[in-house]
Amino acid sequence: MVTTSSTQGGAVAPPTAVPRPSAAPPARVRLLTTTVPARTAWILRAVSILGPLAAWWALSAAGAVDPAFLPSPAAVWTAGIDMARSGELPSDLLASLGRIGAGFGLAVLISVPVGFAMGTLGWAQPLLEPAIGILRYLPASAFIPLLIIWLGIGEPSKIALLVLGVVFFNTLMTADAVRQVPHRLLEVSATLGAGRWRVATHVVLPHALPGVIDAMRVNAAAAWNFVVVAELVAATSGLGYRITRAQRFLQTDRIFAILVLIGVIGLTIDVALRLLRGRVGRWAR
């Protein structure tokens, strides 16, 4: 669409183009940014869980796999109920949760302040990052013989394994979250007269907190991996210990029941941390 305007002497000025509304982005671009409705999202979540469960049930019902290797969902459910009624499952679950709480909690208490310092203090990153970068590549499970020699076969060595498996990764991920605070926020805060401590506690910490919680969500899964590994070696309780006992007698239904329980607990922890992130960082959505 164009318009014309008159000038002195009757001359007609050249047409002036009228800006047109921008065209809609191509379909291939919209697919990268479009979100699905809430109802569709819940349907997809249900499919992601029920789909593998249906495939598992179909394989066991068809007899395609020997039940000694792949027990049916009904057999796994029965095994879980039996262990719960006998008291084995609750006691082992409490033992594993206690180790998770102590090891993961201690790792968070160490890694979050250190990572925060690495992200805010200029001297902390070059001093700490090289050593932490090297240590995070050392498999935590390789320290099991040393931890048993140093701390014995009791709870301290198991908790120490959890700390070693989580603390270095959580430290670096926390530092990355802190470094993502926009520099303009720091400049504005300094311009308004805020001191270093006030900027750190009122600007950097609130902005980085959602990223710190995301790092905890990722490393909580690693903590469950390491607690099972720790309980496979020289343990008398815990879900990993129960898996070892079931393996000795080829009780695969019990093994599957324990694995399903670990998955449900892990999902519960992940959802809880996600909800916490949503509450403390609504602006970051």
Rank of each mutant, 00 (worst) to 15 (best):
Q251A: 15
V36T: 14
A223S: 15
V12W: 04
A38Q: 13
A230D: 14
A102F: 03
V36Y: 15
T3H: 09
F226S: 07
A131W: 06
G195N: 12
I213A: 03
A79Q: 05
T201L: 12
T171M: 11
A160D: 13
G238L: 06
L250V: 09
G105R: 03
L70A: 06
P15M: 10
I81T: 11
L89T: 01
A246K: 00
Q180F: 01
A230Q: 13
I81Q: 12
A27D: 15
W123K: 00
G9T: 14
A272S: 10
A131R: 00
Q8C: 09
G115E: 02
V181W: 02
P113C: 08
T16Y: 03
A64C: 03
D92N: 08
T33N: 10
M83N: 05
A64V: 09
G51W: 01
P210G: 11
A223H: 12
A62I: 04
A38F: 11
S141P: 03
L261P: 01
P71F: 01
A194N: 10
V212S: 01
E155L: 08
V166E: 04
W283S: 08
I149C: 02
A200Q: 14
A102R: 04
S111W: 04
H183M: 11
G281T: 06
W42Q: 12
G10R: 03
F104R: 02
V178F: 01
R28K: 03
G278Y: 00
E187S: 09
A235M: 07
R282V: 01
R285I: 00
P19K: 07
G87D: 15
I43N: 03
R274D: 00
T78K: 15
R248T: 09
R179E: 15
G87N: 04
A175R: 15
A208V: 04
L94T: 06
A74S: 07
A131D: 10
L93M: 08
S91W: 00
P90R: 00
L267N: 08
G193W: 07
R20A: 14
W224A: 11
A102C: 05
R30G: 12
N225F: 07
L59A: 10
L164F: 14
E155F: 06
L267E: 04
L135G: 07
V112K: 03
L109F: 08
S237Y: 05
A222S: 10
G80T: 03
W123M: 09
L70G: 07
A220D: 06
A75V: 02
G10W: 10
R196I: 11
A215Y: 05
G263M: 00
D253P: 02
A107P: 02
L267G: 12
L53H: 00
F116T: 11
F249L: 13
H202L: 12
P71Q: 05
V112A: 06
L89R: 00
T7Q: 15
